[in-house]
């Protein structure tokens, strides 16, 4: 029965090196740009370019392990990115809230529906990716509706989710026979964790002004 399926097993030796060298060339280009760039915000944008190049190198390995490594790489990127952008605002003293440049009609009508779609798909996906997708939906919602008082709740949720995750890890390491329990806790925990973090960004949109004014 298995013989009937057309199985693809990668033979990467031929293409890996060429692909890697092209990627390294791209990296040289992006680092060249970083080297030439003097302005702080442009540098921040360029770091995203560098992150993408970083993910390409990992993606080229092309095993399941590589894919599992891309996810942490992504998260590290976004986390540092957010922290740095806050730092930038702090250091430049950009206290004045912007007039809502992104205010278009869709933002008033769409958020509910889109958020629901994203969240449902995210729940079906669950786990890490699902968290990101559902979080995206909530982010969009909060960003359009502007909500600030829920932040404490979201923070608490994310704290518990993290604890869940650690518990699941301990289950895997200490009592591996309950692996099933571990999978479910971990899936739920990491989902809640990522959702919470993503939607926090959404609540941060208003930032210091419009909610209170």
């Amino acid at each position: 029965m298995m013989m009937l399926f057309d199985m693809i097993v990668y033979d990467l030796s031929a293409e890996y090196e060429a692909a890697l060298i092209i990627t390294l060339l791209c990296i040289i280009i992006s680092f060249w740009a970083v080297m030439r760039e003097r302005e702080d915000l442009h540098r921040l944008i360029l770091t995203e370019l560098v992150e993408i190049m970083c993910l390409v190198i990992i993606a080229l390995v092309a095993t399941d392990l590589a894919e599992a490594l891309i996810l942490p790489g992504l998260v590290v990127g976004i986390a540092e990115f957010l922290a740095l952008s806050e730092l930038y605002i702090e250091k430049e003293g950009l206290r004045k809230a912007p007039e809502n440049v992104l205010h278009i009609e869709v933002m008033d009508s769409a958020p509910g529906i889109i958020a629901v779609i994203f969240v449902i798909y995210g729940i079906i996906l669950s786990g890490f990716t699902g968290g990101a997708v559902a979080g995206l939906g909530l982010l969009f919602y909060f960003m359009c509706r502007g909500s600030s008082e829920k932040r404490e709740i979201i923070e608490t949720v994310s704290g518990y989710a993290w604890a869940c995750w650690v518990v699941a890890f301990i289950v895997f390491m200490a009592v591996p026979q309950y692996w099933f329990f571990g999978v479910i806790i971990a899936g739920a925990g990491i989902f809640a964790k990522v959702v919470a973090k993503m939607s926090l960004i959404g609540t941060m949109n208003g930032d210091g002004g419009e909610g209170d004014v």
Partner: peptide, 23 residues
């Protein structure tokens, strides 16, 4: 902030090295 930018672009050589080692 400068340090932060450095730390961020530093992840490329870091993860890049790990990926090349893995490959």
């Amino acid at each position: 902030y400068e340090y932060g930018i450095l730390a961020m672009i530093g992840t490329l050589p870091l993860f890049g090295a790990a990926a090349i080692i893995l490959a």
